[in-house]
């Protein structure tokens, strides 16, 4: 209702690219308490269902010659497992379920968000900040538990000239604390921007002359977003592995 009134005022064209990100309670009402089931809840639950469908239902036959769904599940497993092993090292394998959880959640949240009319949970900083902070805290705790105070060697670049080391230490320290910020904003920003741009193009479709161009643009943008959905999940995961490697082997 409100948006219609708004649209009428701006002469037929409706630009509300950010409306798709509004969090609404599922069962009516206006108040959102911490426990209220919202569209966030719904689409996270769908991500869980999708993960279970692929990784549990899809692999239920445990076939030596895999079915299609089992193949995809194994592919995802192998993809993340190899990433953890190659980037973070053999001793990071015990964090594999954790990293797999992050990857599966992000990749399914991103792809579910590409369904028209859906809600993209990973476009919210509230979600990605928690994901990034979880990684940050894990990495920091693991770093100190594994290496004790030696973990601080991460900030002391021993290969640099002695005079430069304090300055580098400050830079390293800042970059260390900026990590969760960039880690979270990169994911949410990419996803949000793509969805918003699609919505803007969709808004132009109201003009009959422009609509073919608009449809083509939306199609192209959608293709790009499919790519972004996977790449951002990949980037988030591989950065997690890189940070984990720093925690396990802090020497430069």
């Amino acid at each position: 209702m409100a948006s219609e009134a708004h649209g009428a005022e701006s002469g037929g064209l409706e630009f509300h690219p950010m409306d798709q990100f509004i969090i609404k309670p599922l069962f009516g009402g206006d108040i959102i308490n911490w426990y209220t089931p919202t569209n966030v809840t719904l689409w996270m639950a769908l991500a869980v269902v999708a993960v279970i469908a692929l990784m549990v239902v899809g692999t239920r036959r445990r076939a030596v010659v895999p079915s299609r769904s089992q193949s995809i599940g194994e592919l995802a497993y192998g993809f993340v497992y190899k990433m953890v092993e190659d980037v973070a090292g053999k001793d990071a394998i015990k964090f594999f379920p954790y990293i797999m959880t992050l990857f599966m959640f992000i990749v399914f949240a991103n792809f579910l968000g590409l369904i028209p009319m859906s809600f993209t949970t990973t476009s919210h900083f509230g979600v990605t900040v928690v994901l990034a902070l979880l990684v940050f805290l894990t990495v920091t705790v693991v770093g100190f538990v594994k290496n004790g105070m030696g973990f601080l060697g991460l900030f002391w670049v021993s290969s640099a000239p002695l005079a430069l080391r304090p300055i580098l230490a400050i830079i390293e320290l800042i970059s260390y604390f900026v990590r969760p910020v960039s880690h979270s904003i990169r994911l949410a920003g990419n996803v949000m921007a793509g969805h918003a741009v699609i919505k803007v193009f969709a808004g132009f479709a109201a003009i009959a002359v422009v609509s073919p161009v608009s449809v083509v643009a939306i199609t192209a943008m959608y293709g790009l977003e499919v790519l972004v959905a996977f790449i951002q999940a990949y980037v988030f995961t591989i950065l997690t592995c890189v940070y984990l490697k720093d925690a396990l082997h802090p020497s430069h």
Partner: peptide
């Protein structure tokens, strides 16, 4: 509504973690 998001996100992650691991 961050509290709401964080609450549901943590539940989601825990569920996925247990299902996977």
């Amino acid at each position: 509504n961050w509290g709401n998001q964080i609450f549901w996100l943590l539940i989601t992650l825990v569920v996925i973690y247990f299902v996977l691991s």
